[in-house]
């Protein structure tokens, strides 16, 4: 896995979010995929991890959260 760009500690990452309020880290050097927005960053991978651990507490997609609330 050391070859994967997602594990590369030497580059900066964005934190992306989709309309389901799911997060993804994203290498800053790559174009942002359709349907995702930059929510935070660019910053180090470590900082992304810390931010996510502190802020993303409910991993369920929002659609599922809303369905259960009805």
């Amino acid at each position: 896995m050391s070859d994967s760009i997602f594990d590369d500690e030497s580059i900066l990452f964005l934190i992306l979010i989709n309309d389901q309020k799911q997060y993804s880290i994203w290498p800053n050097i790559l174009p942002i995929p359709d349907g995702w927005l930059a929510d935070n960053g660019p910053m180090s991978r470590k900082k992304c991890m810390d931010w996510l651990e502190a802020n993303w507490t409910d991993l369920r997609p929002i659609q599922s959260q809303e369905e259960k609330a009805v």
Binding site: D7, N18, P33, G35, W36, M49, T57, L59, R60, P61
Partner: peptide, 25 residues
């Protein structure tokens, strides 16, 4: 899967944004 229990960082780095399907992982 929905993700890894109580591991938001790991979830966001293994389930990543898809360049091929809008808004999907």
């Amino acid at each position: 899967a929905i993700g890894y229990l109580k591991q938001a960082g790991l979830s966001a780095s293994r389930f990543v944004a898809s360049p091929f399907h809008k808004g999907q992982r």
